[in-house]
Design a protein around this nucleic acid. Sequence first.
DNA 1: TCGGTTATAATACGAGTGCATTGTAAACGG
DNA 2: CCGTTTACAATGCACTCGTATTATAACCGA
Lengths: 201, 201
Amino acid sequence: MPKIVDHRARRRQIAEAVLRVTATRGLESVSLRDVAAEGGISMGLVQHYFRSKDQMLLFACEYLIERTNQRIAERIAASSTPQTGRSFLRTLLAEILPLDEERRAGTRVWVAFLARAAVEPELERFMRDTWTNSHNYFAGVIRAAQERGEIAPERDPQREAVSVFALTDGLVSHILMGHYSNETALRALDDYLDHLFGTES
Amino acid sequence: MPKIVDHRARRRQIAEAVLRVTATRGLESVSLRDVAAEGGISMGLVQHYFRSKDQMLLFACEYLIERTNQRIAERIAASSTPQTGRSFLRTLLAEILPLDEERRAGTRVWVAFLARAAVEPELERFMRDTWTNSHNYFAGVIRAAQERGEIAPERDPQREAVSVFALTDGLVSHILMGHYSNETALRALDDYLDHLFGTES
DNA sequence: TCGGTTATAATACGAGTGCATTGTAAACGG
DNA sequence: CCGTTTACAATGCACTCGTATTATAACCGA
């Protein structure tokens, strides 16, 4: 055994450099040299930890998802408890929106990978799996709220999850382009929650 | 005056080559040589009609929007008349979804430009303007239906337009990745229209 | 201490890039 | 019919890219 180095930590460190470069200059201008420079390491080291550029990008994408999910879980844990199903769902969805620069940076990277996934089957599969997980989580939250009587029993959690997921993802793009303001997007979210939780009827 | 050539037609022809290459291999692998080969012309000709690659891509993006809007207008004109505000809106929104391969190709290109716009202010401005036009159109359609009594008067067309626009754009991404099926997406659209036109109350 | 394995760096290489330059043919105004 | 302008083609150039190769240093088991 030679030098002891935390392999996974090094890969994450490189992935973070990838994400930073992607957020500022876009995925198409990410080169191994840029990543190495951003991470303050040599290009050979990047190659040592990733067989190819594609594998490096895929890992960076997985890392982005993992980091984002972790951040969301933290914020939810930090929010006031106990809370209703509605407030929980609102916290969750609002956390997905790019409301501050940190999340905007993450979202810029995310749409870059999304565009790449449109022409790369392997990445597309990964995106689909990621979204399926999210969808199932949303549906579970909605079903739980329904079982607690917060949502009318005739609603189908699966169908509602489709709507709320698509609405949120759509708002994400529009906020990112500066088309809808944070307030406008949050109001649209609340409008939907009003509808789902039957405030208006 | 030398050879008489339709300048705009040539530029559109080149733009179509750009869109074809982008739809199959992605925006990041679009080179002047690829575009020339795809269009069956020389690389020098491409340079003759566009000062730089960036300008070529911007024009191609504008052309994509123009072509898409035109196609939507045609389909609407071809649909049965007269129709209710609801059926009109449904036709309009369903036409935006990538339900067949032709529209899927266009959508792949669209998300590629979207990702680029996230790191290019000029393109971002263009995207924002495009979306503002679409939003205003949607709001106008909703307001017209409201004035004809199809939608409850207390609804705000602007707010509803935000929701329907975001929902549709979200569904676009999810369909493109193969996450939601065409039927699932259309059902989510219909669910929203039920809500907007008050079928359920 | 020695041998082998790994971490890290430096660099060479061929392919591809956008753009600039140059060349050629065709169409008009004079 | 001539010259200027434009349409189009071909090629050269400086640069960047991902990857392969090689070199060096550090560590640990034997």
